[in-house]
Design a protein around this nucleic acid. Structure first.
Length: 355
DNA sequence: TACTCGTGGAG
DNA sequence: TCTCCAAGAGT
C-alpha cells in the first residue's frame, strides 16, 4: 500500500463526487454535531428534511440550549432513537454554560459530552476542526475490511479498535476532514454492503479484496437474533367533552418522554383483553373507563422487538389520580405532542373510525 | 460483552 | 413477506 497515493486517489475522488448535502454548506461545529447525531444508524435521505427543519428551528447552541424539551422532542418525532436528542440538548447546554458556547476541539473534552462516542468525537474533530482523529463507522469498517483484508467480525465492539488503528496509519494529516468523509462517502456510493461497484472505485488498485476477489465475502458480520413479540392493548379514551386522554412515558427506556395513548402489555387470552385494559386503568389511576369497539390492529416493528397492538376506543367516566404524566387534549391540540410512530398509527385508526 | 434503543427503505 | 440494514452510544 502506497499511503500517499491512496490518500490522493481517495480525496481527489471525494472532491469530484461528493454529494451536496445540507450539513456540508459550512463547517459550523454545531451543525456538524447535529448532523452526526442524526445520522447515527439513520439514512441520509431520511435525515435531510429533519436536519433542515431542526437547524431552522434551533440555529445555534444558545437556541437549542434554551428550548423546551417538549419542542425539541417534537422536532425529532419520527426519527427514532429519541435518547439521541435528549443527550444532544443536555450536551449543548453543557457547552453553552461550561465552554462559553464553543464546541470543544480536543478529544478529552468532546468525548465527555453526552451522546458523543468515539465515532462522533472523531467526526466532529476532523470535519469541523481538521484534527486527524479516526471516525470509524459502519462504512469505514466495511471499506477498510476490504481494502486491508481484515477478517475480524465487525459486529463485535472490540473490532472497531483495529480499524481505528488502521485509520491512524492511513489518515491524511493534510486534510483529515476530507479523508474521513471520503471513506464514508465511498462506503455509501461505491463500496456498498452488497454488490460493490469495484469497477468504478477510485482506490481499487489499493484494495486487497478486489485483487483477491473477496469483496463479496467482506466484511465479516455475524447475524443478529430474532425479535421478541409483545402484545399491547391500547385505548383512545375521551371524556364527556370529547377531549382525549394521553400519557407521557417515563424518562428512561423505550421511547422515553414521548406521549402515547393509554395501554397495557397483554398477558391474558384475547377474550379477556378489554377487561385487562379496564382493570389496569383502575389500578394505576383509580380511573373508571368503558372500553368500546376495536378500531384497528397494528403491527409495529422496532429493531429489537415487535408490538402487536389491538387498539380500542372508549370513554372515561372519572379519574381520581391527576398526575404530570396524564393530560386531556383536544384532537387539534394533540399534534403539539411528540408521539412514537406506533401511536401515530393508533391516532390514524381513531380518526378513520369516524369516517 | 451483549443488550437496549426506532424507523423506513432496499433487495 | 422476510432480512438486513444506516454516518453508534449508553448501560
Amino acid at each position: 500500500m502506497n499511503i500517499n497515493s491512496f490518500q490522493q486517489d481517495l480525496i481527489t475522488w471525494f472532491k469530484a463526487e461528493k454529494r451536496d448535502l445540507p450539513w456540508r454548506k459550512d463547517q459550523d461545529p454545531y451543525k456538524v454535531w447535529v448532523s452526526e447525531i442524526m445520522l447515527q444508524q439513520t439514512r441520509v435521505d431520511t435525515v435531510i428534511p429533519y436536519f433542515q427543519r431542526f437547524i431552522e428551528q434551533f440555529p445555534t447552541i444558545q437556541a437549542l440550549s434554551e428550548a423546551d424539551e417538549e419542542i425539541v422532542l417534537k422536532a425529532w418525532e419520527g426519527l427514532g432513537y429519541y435518547s439521541r436528542v435528549r443527550n444532544l440538548q443536555s450536551a449543548v447546554k453543557e457547552v453553552h454554560e461550561k465552554y462559553e458556547g464553543k464546541v470543544p476541539n480536543n478529544q478529552k473534552e468532546i468525548s465527555s459530552l453526552k451522546g458523543v462516542g468515539p465515532y462522533t468525537a472523531g467526526a466532529i474533530l476532523s470535519i469541523a476542526y481538521g484534527v486527524p482523529e479516526p471516525a470509524v463507522d459502519g462504512n469505514v469498517m466495511r471499506v477498510l475490511s476490504r481494502i486491508l483484508s481484515i477478517w475480524g467480525d465487525i459486529a463485535k465492539p472490540s473490532t472497531r479498535k483495529i480499524f481505528e488503528e488502521a485509520v491512524r496509519q492511513l489518515i491524511s494529516h493534510d486534510n483529515p476532514s476530507y479523508f474521513n468523509q471520503a471513506l464514508m462517502e465511498l462506503g455509501a456510493l461505491i463500496c456498498t454492503p452488497t454488490s460493490p461497484s469495484c469497477l468504478l472505485c477510485p482506490v481499487r488498485e489499493h484494495c486487497d479484496a478486489f485483487n483477491e476477489g473477496t469483496q463479496n465475502e467482506l466484511p465479516v458480520k455475524t447475524k443478529n437474533k430474532k425479535n421478541r413479540h409483545v402484545r399491547i392493548a391500547a385505548a383512545v379514551l375521551t371524556d364527556k367533552d370529547g377531549r382525549i386522554l394521553i400519557h407521557k412515558r417515563p424518562n428512561t427506556g423505550l421511547l422515553a418522554n414521548l406521549w402515547e395513548f393509554l395501554n397495557v402489555e397483554v398477558m391474558l387470552p384475547f377474550e379477556h383483553e378489554k377487561d385487562q385494559l379496564k382493570n389496569a386503568f383502575k389500578i394505576d389511576y383509580d380511573a373508571d373507563v368503558q372500553i368500546d369497539e376495536m378500531i384497528g390492529q397494528i403491527e409495529h416493528i422496532f429493531s429489537h422487538l415487535t408490538w402487536n397492538i389491538n387498539a380500542y376506543k372508549g370513554s372515561i367516566q372519572s379519574i381520581e389520580k391527576e398526575t404530570e404524566e396524564l393530560k386531556f387534549v383536544t384532537i387539534s391540540e394533540i399534534e403539539q405532542y411528540a408521539f412514537s410512530v406506533s401511536h401515530q398509527k393508533i391516532l390514524k385508526k381513531y380518526k378513520e373510525s369516524f369516517t
